[in-house]
Design a protein around this nucleic acid. Structure first.
Lengths: 197, 197
DNA sequence: GGTACTCCTATAACGGCGCTATAGGAGGCC
DNA sequence: GGCCTCCTATAGCGCCGTTATAGGAGTACC
C-alpha cells in the first residue's frame, strides 16, 4: 500500500512545519516570556507566514495550548526520568522537590502553564499531570498512611507546592530558603501518618 | 496665603482627572480582567484622551502599579475592617480566611496583583501588606509559640495561602473544599505550638 | 496526458493596541 | 499687556492578532 506512505510523506512535511512552529514558539517563550511571544516574530523565526500558523493551530490561544501541553509533558518527564523512592511518602516528598525544580528551571514555561494572561480551561496534559499526582497520593492511601481523602489531599498538596513555586519564580525568596522545606513538611505531616510499626 | 489655595484648586482638578482615570481602570479590570483593560477603552470611559493618561501616569505599567497599590490597600482593609481574634494563632488562622475571601471576591484584582503579564517589582503597598503578615507572625513569636524563624514562617505561610487562593480563583475546586482547610491547618500545625499550660 | 479536487502556503490588508511629537488653551506672576 | 508652567487634544507611528483572497503542489480519475 504505497498510498498511505505517500500520504504520510505529505503529512510528514506538514508535521515538520508544525514542529518548526512549536519549536520557534518555545524558543521565543524561553527568551522573552509570554509577552515576547508574538506571532509575527514566531513566523520570522520559523520561516513561515502567518496564515500557515493559523491553518495549523487555529489561533494564538490554541497554539499556546499546544505549547502548554508540551510543557506538562516535560514536567512529567521530570518525574519519570529518575526513579522515585519506593516508600510512597518519601516519593511524595521527592515529587515536591522535582516540581519546584522544574518551575525554577523553566520559569517562563511555568508561568504560561498556570498564569496565562487569557485564562483557559486546563489542557488534557494538565489534567494528566494532575492525575499523576493523585496516583502518588493514592499510593500513600493504599499503604494506609493517608489521613484525609485522596482527592482533598491531592488538591491541598498541589496548591501548596504551586504556591511555593509561584513565589520562588516571582523572585520573592531564594530556592534554598527554609520556607520551602517548611511548606513541604507541613503538608507531609498534615496529610500522612508516620510509620508506627 | 491665597496662592497655595489656588494651587490646590488647580491640583484638585488634576487630581480629579487622576481619580477618574483610576476609577475607569478599576471598572474595566473588574469587568474584563487585565486583557480587557486597554488605554483606549479607558480613555473613552473616563472622557479623557491618551496623552492625559500618559501625562499623569507615565505608561500603562505604572498605571497598573497604581491600581495594584489600590488593590493592596483594599486587601489590607479586609483585615482592619473587622477585629481580629486576640489569640495570635487564632488571628493568623482568621487572616488566612480573610485573604482567601478577598481573592475570591476580587479575582481579577488578585490576578493583577500577583500574575501581571509583564511582571514588575513589588509595589510599596505590596511590601506593606507583606509586612502586615510578618507582624502577625511576630506576635505569635512574641507569645513564645512560633517554631521557625519569623521570616521563614511568614514566607511559608504566605506561599501556602497564595497557592490556595490562586487555584481557587482558577476554578480548580470549590471554596468550601476540605483542601483549603487542610492547607491552613497544615501550616498552623507546622509553624506554631499548641498551648501546653 | 489532461483535469478537477484537496492541502498547504503566501500576499496584502483590516482593525486595534500602546505610545508620542506637536501644539494649543488656561490660569498664576510680573 | 507679556511670560511661564501645567494640563489636555489632534493626529499619527509602529506593532499586534487575524483573515480574505489567491496560487502552487501533489492525488485521483478520465
Amino acid at each position: 500500500m504505497p498510498a498511505p506512505a505517500l500520504l504520510r510523506a505529505r503529512d510528514g512535511g506538514s508535521a515538520a512545519t508544525r514542529r518548526a512552529i512549536l519549536a520557534a514558539a518555545e524558543a521565543l517563550l524561553a527568551q522573552g516570556g509570554e509577552a515576547g511571544l508574538s506571532i509575527r516574530e514566531l513566523c520570522a523565526r520559523a520561516r513561515v507566514t502567518a496564515p500557515t500558523v493559523y491553518h495549523h493551530f487555529g489561533d494564538k490561544g490554541a497554539l499556546l495550548d499546544r505549547l502548554v501541553d508540551a510543557c506538562f509533558a516535560e514536567l512529567d518527564r521530570a518525574f519519570t526520568r529518575r526513579r522515585s523512592p519506593a516508600d510512597p511518602v518519601e516519593a511524595l516528598r521527592w515529587g515536591f522537590d522535582r516540581y519546584v525544580e522544574y518551575g525554577l528551571a523553566h520559569p517562563s514555561h511555568y508561568r504560561l502553564m498556570f498564569q496565562r494572561s487569557m485564562p483557559r480551561r486546563p489542557t488534557p496534559a494538565a489534567l494528566a499531570s494532575y492525575d499523576r499526582l493523585r496516583r502518588r497520593v493514592a499510593a500513600i492511601a493504599a499503604a494506609g498512611r493517608l489521613v484525609p481523602a485522596v482527592e482533598d489531599a491531592t488538591a491541598a498538596f498541589w496548591s501548596a507546592v504551586h504556591g511555593v513555586t509561584s513565589l520562588l519564580i516571582a523572585g520573592f525568596w531564594k530556592s534554598d530558603a527554609p520556607a520551602v522545606t517548611l511548606v513541604r513538611e507541613a503538608m507531609l505531616n498534615q496529610l500522612t501518618t508516620q510509620l508506627t510499626s
